[in-house]
């Protein structure tokens, strides 16, 4: 975890400023702002959440309640490549559980987890709307349709 944590204390406030500029400073902007923060930082850093709370005039407790309610948000840093295994119904009956196991076995992380070198995070998602190609795995932004456990290894190698 050491490496991943070191980025914590020195968040780039320029990014938050730019995001806050895009929306009216009011509660209805909260989710949209958090989504952009998640995209910019790859997670929701605590310091940024306090900023957002202050700027939008939403109590910090409410910011946290929203940040933990929605699946799109994470409070811990994510790996550079995010692996999403679809566990929607179509994917489930066409073998998604095997795919999750395969990724787990290869990377040694559970769904929701991140590898120690912060290369990969594993998540399960409810349906990505590509059910006709079930089962589906998304590696980064690449969709793998009709995925087979045996074929996953090739996508789980660490680049340079």
């Amino acid at each position: 975890m050491g490496d991943a944590m070191s980025g914590y204390s020195c968040v780039d406030h320029g990014l938050v400023d730019a995001i806050l500029e895009r929306y009216p400073r009011e509660e209805p902007s909260l989710i949209q702002v958090l989504q952009d923060v998640q995209r910019a930082y790859n997670f929701l850093p605590c310091e940024v959440l306090t900023r957002v709370s202050r700027e939008l005039g939403v109590p910090l407790s409410k910011v946290f309640s929203v940040a933990t309610f929605y699946k799109a948000f994470s409070l811990t840093p994510q790996g550079r490549v995010i692996i999403k295994v679809c566990t929607g119904t179509a994917c489930h009956i066409r073998g998604a559980p095997l795919l999750i196991e395969e990724v787990q076995r290869r990377l040694g992380i559970l769904p929701g987890g991140t590898t120690e070198d912060a290369a990969f995070s594993l998540h399960t998602v409810n349906c990505v709307g590509a059910c006709a190609m079930a089962p589906v795995v998304i590696v980064g932004d690449k969709y793998l349709g009709n995925a087979k456990a045996a074929g996953l290894a090739a996508h789980l190698t660490r680049g340079e």
Partner: peptide, 11 residues
């Protein structure tokens, strides 16, 4: 479109 296995609204 929360129902898993449905993707008409996406399309």
């Amino acid at each position: 479109e929360g129902d898993p296995g449905a993707f008409k609204d996406r399309s």
